[in-house]
Design a protein around this nucleic acid. Structure first.
Lengths: 216, 216
DNA sequence: AAGTGTGAAGTATTTCACAGCG
DNA sequence: CGCTGTGAAATACTTCACACTT
């Protein structure tokens, strides 16, 4: 059973490795990945213990093989459909952000209740009226939801998503969601994040980091 | 020295308490705050040990006094100015999200290099050309930055912010930032968050949560 | 000599469990 | 009695340090 943090780290490493692949880099050492991801080599090596791939002490990790191994660990079989609910400012931005970013994990439908927003395509994603949520979740085999509605609507939307069989929710609404057992929720509490930054910035308590060097 | 998580929790509790205040609630027990914030009563009580306020076993916590104590813990003296850099889809959404949310912590300037975006006011915030960043950080006494530029620009922006004396950065760009010692960075890696949701949703490994009850 | 994989140690965070209070 | 505050235990995560490989 892989720890939560490890999964987040692997996602980041994969992204960095994709960049390296594009620049035709063949191999990479843990200390290089560490520098790119702003953490320690030992952390990288421990994270990589979760994927079924071993590096070599001479060459480090082969970039393409490592990416494939991370793919096997992180990705499910086939494509995973995601529904985004709430096509306001934030919803559109998130839609735009995710468009074309990962081909195995795709926002395939967006929902809103404002009549002027529905039956359009925004950033390449069709927008449907919220009434059709249940039907379309089933029809399109959607298993994840992104909540970008205002706080007042968020719980209702979470209930609908859970009822429709969604097993994971990424919640941008500034309110904690109640979901049935077996549904995984990740909250992005932007207010709390900014206030945390404000607090530690003021206290001058930035955590110890690797020294800043050239390249990396 | 207060732990990172505690600060994030306090921010959330304050928001929930503000709602309670608005509905004229006088007192609240740790188990109620726990239910609202979706964690355990013992967690709430431990978090509240960080603020200088004691509840009573009979009445729990007085909402207004507790909010004030959390204010004293989290907020600095006076107002804290924030600069947002990158007025694209995400930047505008974040701007909109934060507008008027907390009066002590305010986005006072936004920056972009696209000529058609600058010298306008978006969601109540003036947008300046990126060339004026350094000057305006000093002039407006800005100590925090929000980075909402594309990955390719993010490091340059972080350098400018750090150079301008910013002590904390909330980074939405999908790339880890290098900053000088003493600058606190909080990264919001939306791709990693969604992939984490996808992973644990698929594995059916939603963490144990409090049972779902009525009210809360 | 310089890297990987990993047990063991260290640190951070959560939770238990219970003394003490009103 | 039911709650708060908190040592102590449990758990989660990170880092060290070193045997082993090339």
């Amino acid at each position: 059973m892989i720890p939560e943090r490890t999964i987040a780290h692997l996602s980041l490493y994969r992204r960095l490795l994709d960049d390296l692949l594009r620049s035709d880099r063949e191999c990479v050492y843990s200390y290089e990945l560490a520098s790119l991801s702003r953490n320690k080599p030992a952390q990288v090596r421990r994270d990589l213990m979760a994927v079924d791939y071993a590096g070599s002490s001479a060459r480090g990790y082969e970039v393409d093989a490592l990416v494939e191994s991370i793919d096997r660990t992180l990705d499910g079989p086939g494509r995973t459909g995601v529904a985004l609910v709430g096509v306001g400012n934030l919803g559109r931005a998130v839609l735009h952000f995710f468009m074309g970013r990962r081909k195995r994990l795709e926002i395939v439908a967006a929902f809103d209740h404002a009549p002027e927003k529905v039956d359009r395509v925004i950033h390449g994603c069709p927008v449907y009226p919220i009434e059709r949520l249940g039907a379309l979740l089933a029809e399109k085999g959607i298993s994840l939801g992104i909540v970008t509605v205002p706080a007042s609507e968020a719980q209702k939307v979470a209930d609908l998503l859970a009822l429709g069989g969604v097993k994971g929710i990424l919640n941008f609404a500034p309110v904690p969601l109640r979901v049935p057992r077996g549904v995984y929720v990740e909250a992005v509490d932007m207010t709390a994040l900014l206030e945390k930054v404000a607090f530690f910035a003021r206290k001058g308590q930035a955590p110890e980091r690797l020294p800043i060097e050239e390249e990396g």
